[in-house]
Design a protein around this nucleic acid. Structure first.
Length: 460
RNA sequence: GGCCCCAUCGUCUAGCGGUUAGGAUCCAUGGUUUUCAUCCAUGUUACCGGAGUUCGAGUCUCCGUGGGGUCACCA
């Protein structure tokens, strides 16, 4: 059985890079009827944040990704790690190191000055003397002294790293807590993880974790290191690049399926296909189709996907979603008409809300450029006559408004634009939007007249 | 700096030794539409450079160049 996991550290919100690796892992598990675990890497007690934890869970919930079993916390598994530490210690595969942090820093500094790679000099590796007093030791793993650590990466292929690049790294801090590279290896092994999918910033952790696997006699999983997501300038994504927090996308009016579809195509592809439903992703995802190179993040495609998914959404769902954007269409008898008139034109829910606003509220201002362009001397008289026409015919349907408009221009022997443009401005405050007949059907006779009258006043 | 990874239109990508280098997005143009948008059609734009292997190289090899990652008692 395939078992995958997402293992964030609770130090901040879930960012889109994290969401993508989570998505890949989730898809792989779901595709194969396997398990997807959520494990919180909170061994560094000083860096944990409850809020970050909640934010991650919230983001998962929003995009609709589920996980199997309970959320696993490494901070609750310290006794398990301790057991394995003791095992390594007693087998001589790990050792206590009494070097103080200050000494270590000094060593590092000296090495940097000599322009050699900073590394621990293994001074306590074979130490047999009496340990210095008053120092709480760390525990270090005995990494191989020579040779090459190799593994086959599902994305990058064969990776070989010289053992000399891997230090006797710390597996237990002086405060007794175990460190990341140790607990990851232990947990992945103990939890039966078969496939690890993570960012390629972890590529260098892999040989370290392999050292642990080997010391403990565990088999190691398949590794897949996914290249990073960069910003539009090709640089590492940072907070300065706008939305990196997954929940920020919700706030900006994106649909979760649009975000997921966007992310799944960042670094992964299936031929020429662009649109993937969640079901299709689950069916088609395969780590072998993950791209080796980093990708730059560009909003265009996300916007395009989002407008696609807005059009695909049922009106009922949009009504619910729109509530977060200040639009309450619940119980509005014209909600279907309103949505039909607006959803084709919206790229985000914020867009959509804005357009709906124009329909249900009288314009607060009129586009000035458009006013100048569209309003001629006779405009107010034409509009006045149009009000009379509405009053005498009192149209109710889109079709009736359509006919009224046609009859009106025919009778007055004027071009359609003569009435249509100013009318549009009067009703919406701008020159774009749904069809006039549609708008008037939604707005209704009385409100149409009111808006036109208000507009006439404004141009007189 | 050492080590590792990467390199096709602006962007996301297909390609897996022989293609007019394909799709999507963006942009432009035309059509549909009472405007805008949608939709449809068309178009501009790419194999980082140099050697080599080969009858033939975007595809394989090497060297450059560029970008990224990593070198913590963070994860």
């Amino acid at each position: 059985m395939i078992v995958t996991r997402f293992a964030p550290s609770p130090t901040g919100f879930l960012h889109i890079g994290g969401l993508r690796t989570a998505l890949f892992s989730w898809l792989l598990a779901r595709k194969n009827g396997g398990k997807f675990l959520l494990r919180i890497e909170d061994t560094d007690l000083s860096r944990n944040s409850e809020d970050a934890m909640k934010a991650i869970l919230k983001a998962f919930d929003w995009v609709g990704m589920d996980y199997d079993g309970e959320v696993l916390y490494q901070s609750k598994r310290f006794d398990i790690y301790k057991q394995y530490i003791n095992q390594l210690l007693s087998e001589g595969k790990a050792y206590k190191c009494y070097m103080s942090k200050e000494e270590l820093d000094a060593l590092r500094e000296e090495q940097m000055a000599q322009k050699i790679r900073p590394h621990y000099d293994r001074r306590y590796r074979d130490f047999t003397g009496t340990p210095p007093v008053g120092i709480s030791p760390v525990v270090r793993i005995k990494a191989p002294l020579e040779g090459v650590i190799s593994f086959k990466d599902g994305v990058k292929g064969e990776i070989n790293i010289a053992a000399s690049e891997v230090d006797d790294f710390i597996i237990v801090r002086s405060d007794g807590t175990p460190t990341y590279n140790f607990v990851v290896a232990v947990d992945d092994a103990l939890m039966g993880i078969t496939d690890v999918i993570r960012g390629d910033d972890h590529l260098y952790n892999t040989p370290k974790q392999i050292v642990i696997y080997q010391a403990l006699g565990f088999d190691f999983p398949r590794f897949n290191h996914v290249a990073m997501i960069n910003n539009e300038q090709g640089k590492k994504l940072s907070k300065r690049d706008g939305a990196t927090d997954v929940m920020e996308y919700k706030a900006q009016g994106f649909l979760p399926e649009a975000l997921l579809n966007f992310l799944v195509r960042l670094g992964w592809s299936h031929g020429d296909q662009e649109i993937f439903s969640i079901e299709q992703m689950q069916e088609l995802f395969d780590p072998k189709d993950i791209n080796k190179s980093a990708s730059s993040y560009s909003l265009d495609k996300l916007l395009w996907l989002n407008s696609y998914y807005i059009k695909e959404s049922t009106n009922a769902r949009l009504v619910v979603l729109l509530k977060d954007f200040g639009i309450d269409l619940q119980g509005n008898s014209k909600s279907d008409l309103i949505l039909r008139a607006t959803k084709e034109r919206a790229r985000t829910l914020i867009d959509l809300a804005g357009q709906i606003c124009l329909l249900i509220e009288s314009p607060k201002s009129y586009d000035e450029k458009a006013m100048k362009k569209v309003c001629k001397e006779d405009t107010r008289f034409i509009l006045n006559d149009f009000i009379s026409a509405i009053k005498s015919k009192s149209p109710k349907s889109k079709e009736a408004f359509h006919d009224l408009l046609q009859d009106f221009v025919a009778q007055k022997e004027i071009g359609f634009g003569k009435i249509a443009q100013p009318l549009r401005l009067a009703l919406m405050g701008e020159l774009s939007g749904a069809g006039l007949d549609e708008i008037m059907e939604i707005v209704g006779n009385d409100e149409t007249i009111k808006r036109v009258e208000k507009f006439i006043l404004a141009i007189s």
